[in-house]
Nucleic acid binder design. Sequence first.
RNA 1: GCUGGCGUAGCCAAGUCUGGUCAACGGCAACGGACUCAAGAUCCGUUCUCGCAGGAGUUCCCAGGUUCAAAUCCUGGCGCCAGCACCA
Length: 961
Amino acid sequence: MSEIADRETKWQARWKEAGLGRAHREEGRPKYFIVFAYPGSSGFQHLGHMRGFTYADALARFHRMQGARVLFPGGTHASGLPSVTFAAKVEHGDPDTLQGLKGLGLNEEGIARLTSPEEAARFLGETYWQAWERFGLLMDRGAYLTTIDPDYRQFIRWQFARLEQGGYLVQKPYYAPFCPRSGPVSVDPSETDLSRGGSAEIITYTALPFTLDDGRVLLAATLRPETVYGATNVWLPPDGSLEEWKVQGRTYLASPAGVAKLLEQQGGERGGQVPIASLLGSTARAPLTGERLPLIASQLVNPAVGTGVVMSVPGHAPADWVAIGELPAADAERLRGATRTIIDVPSAGLAPSEQELLKGEGAPAGRAIANIGVQGLGDKVRLQEATERVYLLEFSHGVLSVGPFAGHPVARARTEVAQQAMATEGAVEIREFSEPVVCRCGETVIIRRIPDQWFLGYGSMDWKRETREAARRMHFEPREYGTELEKILDWFDDRPAMRQGKWLGTPFPRDPRWIIEPIADSTFYPAYYVVRRYVSDGRVSVDQLTEAFFDYVFLGRGAGEPSVDLTLLREIRQEFEYWYPLDLNLGGKEHKRVHFPVFLYNHVALLPPEKRPLGIFVHWWLTSYTGEKISKKDVKGGQLPPVDEALTLWGADAIRLYYAIGASPSQDIQWDREACAASGDRVEETLRQITALPPTPAAPIEKGALVAHVDRWFATRVVGLLQRVRESFEGYDLRTASQGAFVELPALIRRYRARGGDHPELLGAVADLWVRLIAPITPHIAEEAYRVRGGKGFVSVAGYPRGTELPAFPDSLERERVVEGVEEDVAALLKVWKKAPAKLRVFVAAPWKYHADARLRERLADGPLNIGRYMQEAKIDPALQPHMGDLPKFLQEVRNTGLSGLPPLLSPGDELATLQESATYLARRLEVPSVEVWTEDEGAPHDPANRRGRSRPGKPALALE
RNA sequence: GCUGGCGUAGCCAAGUCUGGUCAACGGCAACGGACUCAAGAUCCGUUCUCGCAGGAGUUCCCAGGUUCAAAUCCUGGCGCCAGCACCA
């Protein structure tokens, strides 16, 4: 093990031994309760996962050092599919998974155990916890949980009982993926249940009824029901049969595949076969318009898609347009002149590519065909493009121009037409996957209607309104997320809260066939962390976690669980009252639209306003380098290293600093190995420097102890820096805070020393503050340095610098600025001054200029400078009168810069004294053998170019020789 | 399309809400120097252009506009990213 790893494990062990992570309530003392959105137990963690956890720890540490009692718990989310997937990978012998497990030191037997999803979840959870410890996270192990623990399940049962009681659960029909052989399945990209089709979406068609003369009804499935006003005919497959579907006393016709879907989704029963040939040549009455349309066969129609019957809208559907063009003469005759344009797209405001699409005359579909150059029905790629573009364009910009909904935008008319067709014409919805979905068992997955699905009623206006109000009182980081969340709440709708299938989770108490869905069981859990500590140390048993228990602890309602000792019960209630509300919930940007909204909703449903969360912190991701076109030599970071490897290479402190200083949290960081390594160097250098500084003085530095300008200046700058760092932490700005602690402070010390500063007590005091300053970000080296410097206890619980620890001398900053100005100016001069200078003369402005300057500031404060008036006044000012000739030039220079362009105002004596005191420094620094400081009106040495005349208060003139 | 975000010097990335202190923090990289037998680390300097006196010019995706003043505000355009639901 490396020296770094040894150091880090040593301190982690000591923190654990001292119990620093354990939360202790102390009434009357401020508290800070922070959680991160617990990770799903899906596999091995990498550096990307650790970014947010580190932020949470840095904030928790900062507040702990500020004197707050901190509750910083963590857990893992084992519900749902991830652990099931992982266990399946173990079972199937997935090479990456097995290699990872062996890397963690598991033997065959240990690995075999992980084929159980529960075991896998617990195991993964432990590896996460270990990673958190190794990153230096100071958390309360007593609160650690996984969501499949029996006590957690008790908690979830209580939560859902309360939600149901409060009317937050609703039951209504739902359409879900279903395997006829294996039962409910999940269609998601991990394809745990599937052998193909994980990225399929469920598409909802409207099946419009077209009535034949004999009363039977053809169902034509469409995604664009509003185009019924432009329908010219009905397409049927070229051969085969349709099938009857009988429902509610009516008989519909659709393809056999279509009928199969309808039976699953709508019920009813199958009827007889109807040969398509028997239908061709007749007509059907269209819904809503009542027009009679011819039935025509076409290759266009795929009986497997939708209902196998399609209404033809050649004006707006490129495929229909092309199909009609390719019809035999007899069929074409029946349609002549029927193509219509029923959607207008105003050309104003269209993107050039959209304008291009609609160039020309005639129906939009025909124009798109011509402009894209579709060659015929066989030209599938271009036909597809034309279809998609017309569809999108008309959906987003089109306005319906005929019928009762004329004038309505297509996006709106579409639902209006569908609603009306369903209400008055007997239209039905039919759903199918966007691509074939096949179960692991080999069976094709279908969509089945579940009549009594449980939802969380997030669409409810009352609940939504109260949640929005709660959000308005919260703090969001970044602030933009607050406005975004309001928008999200606007469209947030009921969500299925349970499912039937093979998932990990808690059965719904009222009906255990339902397993509570993973998003739904991870909304109110911060509250349970408080209780969990009493379960893990055995003071409360699982069977004591009754509804009465939780009612009392969380809501203060009822007498509580009688089997729990009353004193203990009261204590737990007090704990909850102490820690709640939650100060901060921190999570990655993937949680913006799902977890954070429901987290808030549930707190609103269950708790009174004063107990609702106070803040949400969203961080972006650490991304791996994905560019492909750049040659390998240029590839910066490459893949994200696994946690173990990264810790061995650089150590936790280095990575923590890298996270904190690399970018602001609301920005993806692209992994940069070299930058991470460099931050490791910085960490080690910081440790070296702090330990090399003089010892911490026994007593605070008194104001009187600092006499020299550099000492005063240094102390003042440090004070400002400490304040800024603390404020940055309070404002969640970890980047600025780290920059101050790791970049600016060492730079300040360097300059202080370069300026000749060497006040041992002052440096010692600063070193002690520095150790504390860095502790939230790099706790291990902070402890190390703290101990080496003789600190007592742990710096992790020492006080955080506030900026009141050192005396400050505001005027010293202005003095120093004069010196800095001279440095900058000389550096600029030397750039163009080719020779090596032998001597630098510095001329401080003559006293009358200070007088003129003071007057100038008064005038500028009133508005733009009136030079004429100023001169009038100067004439009668005895101090300025002798210098009337020089005044205009003096004034001219400030005329354009205004007040803000003026350097700080010092007294002439202060400026002169500061520069004299700094002459040696300037000589060394600027590599000029001799530096002399004069005043402008002092007896002049050699000054042929009359440089001295340039001098202004705060900005002395310079002469190089 | 909807919702949100982004476009800053070789690369990463602050600054934009609250216009001036911004040729624009910080990091990486590169170059020069100090130190070293050497390497690494560390320290100093340089990295838009021009300039033999502290200056000037041109920049913050593009084009306009507001303003004494714009990376920052407004309008329009171009380009890119994420999410869009049952998936954690």
